[in-house]
Each structure stands twice: as C-alpha cells, then as structure tokens.
Design a protein around this nucleic acid. Structure first.
Length: 255
DNA sequence: ATGCCTCAGCTCCTGAGA
C-alpha cells in the first residue's frame, strides 16, 4: 500500500498527468492533490471514478483547492481546520482504511513580515492545535501535502543564498518542529536519501535541469505508523513531462 | 531584474506562486 502527495498546479491542466501516473502506480491507495484550482462543480470526478478511484474534493476558483483520490471510499471527511475560519480551501481530511489522512496545502507566506506570512503563522498555529485533538481521536495519522517549508540545508539547493528567505525562515521551521513534537515523523528522512533531493523546482532559469529546487512537499506519519513505514521516495518522473507541474509526487510505502 | 515561467481570469495584462 502506497500513499502519495502531489501539488498539481491546476488539475484542469494536469489531469492527463495524474491519470497516467495513477495507472503507472497502481499500488497507490491514497493520492492527496493540492492546488487543484477548480471549483467543486467542475471537479473531474468522472475521470477518476472511471479509473476505479473514489474522490473527495474541496476547491475554489483560481487558487488553492485540495482533493483525496482513494482506492477505498473515504469516510468522515472534514474540510479545512475546524474552528479556524478561512476563505481558502487548503485542507481535506478523511479516514481511508485504518488511516486518518490529512491532505494540506500550507500557505505560501510570500515574504517574512508580510501580511501573508502573518496568516501563514496563524494557520500553522491552528493546524497544530487541531492536530493535537485529531491525533487523540485517530492515532494512525498521516499529514501530507505542500508544506511550503524546508526543514534544513539539505532541503535547499542554495542554503547560503536562501537563508532566511520564505520557506527557509526560523519561524517556519519552528512551526514544523512543533508538528514533529506531536510525534509526527518526516517519512523521507527515516531513510538514507540521495543528496540534493527536492520536490519543487522553479519553472524559470532551467531550474529543474540544473536541480535548483526545494524539498517543501512532505509526508509525516504518526508514532504508531512509524514501524509500518517501508520506504519514502520522490518521483521526479512527472516533472520531466511536457507542461509539468512545478512540484513532483512524494510517495510513502507502508507495510 | 520588483525578471526569468506558468496558471486563472474581470484574458492580450495582472496577481500569485515559491
């Protein structure tokens, strides 16, 4: 059983890539999507159902939007962070098999000290506080998505030049540390990984070809799930296609 | 270079992304 996350940067544009990827990766039982950028009435649910998947989605016009594509039906679906009013569609949570799955598109934050950065910190506070409750109710929990935060220098193609810039600030990393402190483990770092492993590359300046990227897409597993984690990898394949998303899938294998 | 690409949409420019 595999679980994956992928920021597709418009599901309308990327639908063929997603369907092809699912077909090539039939052991993926849960795929969390971010930045679907489509309203629920336009979500291409028929295409996924025809391919043998159930879909849960939570979208809006132009920006954001998240979804869970699952082999088994998802139950107890929750949209966004309970108790945190937000006009952006950023989180979708559901129970799939014996797992509680949280798929999230964390705020970008734009720049330290901007209004959007303040919102990012408030959002992260709310996520943390809600996860305390959610973990109590659902000990086997996966938190995955586009975090828009790097953990350390290994996650940054030029850690010197980018020190203190958005996605690399101490404040953002302190928030990630608070999530780890809940017993959530960065599945990718449970294993030896190739150097310069990233999940996102800018569209500009041939960043992918030069491997100038960031690792900002993460899969975190709760303590009871940690012994079941067999592998965690980044699949760079979709980033090499024509008209790719700027992000590529991260894949977790559970035993 | 407050740009470089890409996407959506109040679409031939702008705002946002990261």
């Amino acid at each position: 059983m595999q679980i994956a996350t992928w920021n597709v940067n418009s599901l309308t544009v990327r639908l063929p890539h997603v369907l092809d990827w699912l077909q090539a990766n039939p052991t993926v039982g849960v795929l969390a999507l971010q930045e679907t950028k489509t309203t629920d009435d336009k979500f291409p649910q028929g295409a996924f159902q025809d391919a043998g998947y159930a879909v849960s989605f939570f979208g809006q016009k132009t920006y954001n939007g998240v979804a869970l594509i699952t082999r088994q039906a998802a139950t107890d679906v929750v949209r966004n962070i309970p108790g945190f009013p937000d006009d952006m569609a950023r989180v979708i949570t559901a129970t799939v098999d014996d797992l509680r799955i949280v798929g999230a598109y964390f705020p970008n934050g734009q720049a330290p000290e901007s209004d959007k950065f303040v919102y990012k910190m408030r959002w992260l506070d709310a996520l943390h506080d809600w996860l305390v409750e959610e973990l109590r109710a659902h000990p086997r929990l996966v938190l995955m998505g586009d975090f828009n935060i790097t953990w350390d220098d290994r996650d940054v193609w030029d850690p010197v030049a980018l020190a203190g810039t958005i996605h690399c600030t101490d404040e953002e990393r302190a928030q990630l540390a608070r999530l780890y402190a809940l017993g959530l483990h960065d599945a990718f770092r449970l294993f030896e990984q190739p150097e310069k492993s990233y999940s996102w590359w800018d569209y500009r300046e041939f960043a992918f070809r030069r491997n100038r990227g960031l690792r900002i897409d993460h899969i975190l597993v709760s303590e009871p799930l940690k012994p079941r984690v067999v592998a965690c990898t980044i699949d760079k394949g979709p980033r090499k296609l024509e008209r790719p998303s700027d992000h590529t899938p991260v894949v977790l294998t559970l035993g």
